[in-house]
Amino acid sequence: MSVSSSTVTRRRTLAAVGTVAALALTLAACGSSESSKSDSSSMPGMGHGSATAAASAAPGGTFNAADVEFAQQMIPHHQQAIEMAKLADGRAADPEIKTLAAAIEKAQDPEISTMKGWLRSWGKPLPAASASMGDMPGMDHGSNGSKMPGMMSDQDMRGLEAAKGKDFDKKFAQLMIGHHEGAVTMAETERKKGANADAKKLADAVITAQTAEIEKMNKIIARL
């Protein structure tokens, strides 16, 4: 059966339109996929452990004095924990202490960056660089005169620095337990009194992670 030239032309036109439509759908799907990947990878705090994954670097919403104090105090508190963890290199003998020290440093460093981002976004001052030194037991770090719990004194830090092997392992665990207990206390206060959702999420994560580490260190001490 013969086919007219106009019929052939119509069929070719429809085929071309179908090809263009299919290509457009493919490109749209790819663009949507790439956009989704980009949004996921750019989320602040992702890839830094449970605590910072729960809170963005620049939280939106309201905040109050408790949120500000939590960040201003927890930053130097974390900084001192990192200083303690770094002492394990070349001093610790127990494999679990070495692993724990590395985990503390890896988890708390990005949390410090997150909290600094909050303070900047809130227009609040960062804590002084010397606030993590712990050379004044019971020194005030909050605007309302509250104490920062769990901070090590300069004497504690010197004693830990001078220790080696099993002696270091035991001192490290004992001091870090007290330090973690202080962090948990601060986080519990934030959870009760804070207003910012992201700060409260970080507080929840600190409580969960550091309570588990306290239990682990108690077990280490029991077998040393």
Results as ranks from 00 to 15, higher is better:
T114H: 10
W118M: 00
L119V: 03
W122V: 01
G123I: 01
K124D: 00
P125R: 00
L126Q: 08
A128C: 05
A129N: 06
S130H: 05
S132W: 06
S132C: 02
S132P: 03
G134T: 06
G134I: 05
G134Q: 05
M136S: 11
M136W: 06
G138A: 08
M139N: 10
M139P: 04
D140Q: 14
D140F: 09
G142Q: 02
S143L: 10
N144V: 03
G145T: 11
K147V: 12
G150K: 08
G150Q: 09
M151I: 00
M151D: 02
M152E: 13
S153T: 02
D156N: 11
R158A: 14
E161W: 03
A162Y: 10
K164F: 11
K166V: 05
D169W: 09
F172E: 02
Q174D: 12
I177V: 07
G178C: 08
H179M: 01
H180F: 03
H180P: 03
E181G: 13
G182H: 00
G182R: 00
A183G: 15
V184F: 09
A187V: 08
T189F: 15
T189A: 15
E190H: 09
E190L: 09
R191H: 14
G194C: 04
N196D: 10
D198G: 01
A199E: 04
A199P: 04
K200A: 13
K201M: 11
L202V: 09
A203V: 08
D204C: 01
A205S: 13
A205G: 08
V206W: 15
V206K: 14
V206T: 14
T208N: 13
A209C: 11
Q210T: 00
T211V: 06
A212W: 06
E213W: 14
E215K: 15
M217W: 13
N218K: 15
N218C: 10
